[in-house]
Design a protein around this nucleic acid. Structure first.
Lengths: 145, 145
DNA sequence: TGGGATAGCACGGGATTTCGTGGGACCACA
DNA sequence: TGTGGTCCCACGAAATCCCGTGCTATCCCA
């Protein structure tokens, strides 16, 4: 199981729409053969989620386990979890071209932040990330974490 | 399970941002292969917490056991426990380069103090540590510890 | 019990490799 | 022949490794 840990900065090559996956995370993208990743836009946040393909598909399988493929729930889950995602392969330098739809959703330009979430990691516009962290940390004030 | 016991002094190489993990604690950082540690800033104190990676991740795993990786709670827990930490590997001399963010939070310069807390240990600016100890000891006056 | 040899540890400074990044070449397809 | 996508190469910066050195604590033996 992959472990995406910590947060690092990086740049967005607006000219080519290209990002370089930080070495820290690249080494965690396992899998047979080429390094395949799943990208999807976060539903409620202005960021992109990145998963190793095999891990993501395992989560989907777990989610629909036991359901008939003809059932309405199977169809609904699949529409949301696999209908809207992008599959990309890292190039030899560990970079990928970000689909425009995703780059726009997350407001990519200039500086980015890559933040580990264990099984996956998120990519943020650096300024938006700082705002969001400050907001959530303030909410948590007084917690025992 | 590791046992970090006692308090020892050490230095901070400001030029390279490097610290040498005291031999007393180094021998307690177990794990397969390379010696990996987790660093995180203490939420309420001006110090850095250091954990053996395996032990820290075991705590995290226990916290999210049974949760779907697609759930909001998994995401929230991981943001706090995994997104904000740093993974470092001891170099052949038992040293690590302290991330700037952490060195600043704890005010590292000149002399440091490494203080065991059982499962982990803390790193303090030596002067700040002395202050904090004096303050807490005064509070405890009359206690039976 | 004192003194000298030895090993381990902390520390400083270079040398080497890796990583991120920009730009250009090549190929497929239209 | 234009266009988009992928691959390849090269450069600068930064992280990593690898030495050598001095000090301190330990051990051994007289």
């Amino acid at each position: 199981m992959s472990e995406f840990i910590g947060t690092v900065g990086g740049g967005y090559d607006a000219k080519k729409g290209r990002i370089s996956v930080p070495s820290l995370f690249r080494s965690q993208i396992a899998g047979p053969g080429a390094l395949e990743i799943i990208l999807r836009r976060s539903r409620h946040k202005r960021c992109i989620e990145v998963w190793p393909k095999a891990d993501y598909m395992a989560e989907v399988d777990a989610r629909v386990e036991g359901l008939s493929k003809l059932s309405a729930e199977y169809q609904s889950v699949m529409r949301k979890l696999v209908g809207k995602i992008h599959t990309l392969t890292l190039d030899p330098d560990g970079r990928v071209v970000m689909p425009k739809e995703l780059a726009e959703h997350a407001g990519f330009e200039g500086e980015l932040q890559f933040s580990g979430r264990g099984a996956y990691f998120e990519i943020w516009n650096a300024a938006a990330f700082a705002e969001e962290e400050a907001r959530l940390d303030a909410e948590d004030e007084g917690g025992d974490v």
